[in-house]
Simulated assay, not measured.
Amino acid sequence: MLIDLSGKTALVTGSTQGIGAAIAAGLAAAGARVAVNGRGKESVDAAVARLGKGGSGGAFLAAPGDVATDEGAEAVFAAVPDVDILVNNLGVFGSRPALEIGDAEWRRYFDTNVLTAVRMIRHYLPGMTGRSWGRIQNIASDSAVAIPAEMIHYGMSKTALLAVSRGFAKEAAGTGVTVNSVIAGPTHTGGVEDFVYELVDRDLPWDEAQRAFMREHRPQSLLQRLIEPEEIAHMVVYLSSPFASATTGGAVRVDGGYVDSILP
């Protein structure tokens, strides 16, 4: 399948590393002009330079700003006034016993993982509907469906994100704009490596630690390994393409079979 996104502008929030960077690279490889976002100018500029050397063949531009804040979001809107493809990837996660999660932490997870996506959609959706074409994807998680006992605040935020996606898909009904969630399973990123070592023996080599984590904490996975960021990006690139024109309001799984259900 040849996906051509030439002439399209994409914005991927939280894209200086990990899944976001892989998505940015994948969209650029398909021909899109991709805005790379992160909180600080230095980290964004470094990511743009690194991605530009990655051989994707696409064009990148810097869009620094903490989109979890009004001021940061405005900076991004100024750098990228209109987009054809919006990928809300920014998110925070971490483990904490349920009864130790305070009000401030609950709010932080909701503000960062849910309200940020709402803020970005609210700004960019009108332009997409006006042009009768657009793609919005919210990066969710298997934790939205199978709430992990060690981070229910994270699971709550990703469940809410599924509702946000479905609701805005209804808002965009009949306009040529699609809105979907991508349910990512346990994925191999630097942040996840730190998370794995919070739960298993830190003295284990990475390959052994990964296997122990999947065996002890994610035994439902049919893949039986962590997913690579590029595997998430493949689905995002497809959903960003004209080939996915009839897929909207959905929660599309790239979870390695982790969620034990035919439907999300």
Rank of each mutant, 00 (worst) to 15 (best):
W106S: 13
P205E: 12
A62M: 01
G257P: 10
F60H: 02
V145D: 04
G176T: 02
D207Q: 13
F60P: 01
I136H: 00
S241C: 07
N138W: 06
A163N: 14
S56R: 06
A79G: 07
A49W: 07
G72D: 01
Q137S: 10
V259C: 02
I183E: 01
F60W: 05
A163Y: 09
A46T: 06
M235G: 15
P219H: 12
I232W: 09
R211A: 15
E216K: 12
H234V: 14
V34H: 02
L5K: 09
K41Y: 06
G20C: 05
A47S: 12
A49K: 14
A251M: 03
V179T: 07
R50T: 14
F168A: 04
A73E: 03
L2G: 10
L125K: 11
A163W: 08
G40A: 13
A209E: 05
H217V: 08
V34K: 00
K53S: 14
S56C: 07
G26V: 07
A28G: 14
M156D: 05
Y124D: 02
T248F: 06
A146G: 01
L263T: 12
V179M: 11
G38K: 00
E230T: 12
P148F: 12
G38T: 00
L90M: 12
G249W: 02
T187R: 01
A62P: 02
A63D: 10
P64R: 06
G130D: 12
R166T: 10
I232C: 10
G57S: 07
V87N: 01
D82S: 09
W133M: 06
V34A: 04
H217C: 08
V252N: 05
E216L: 13
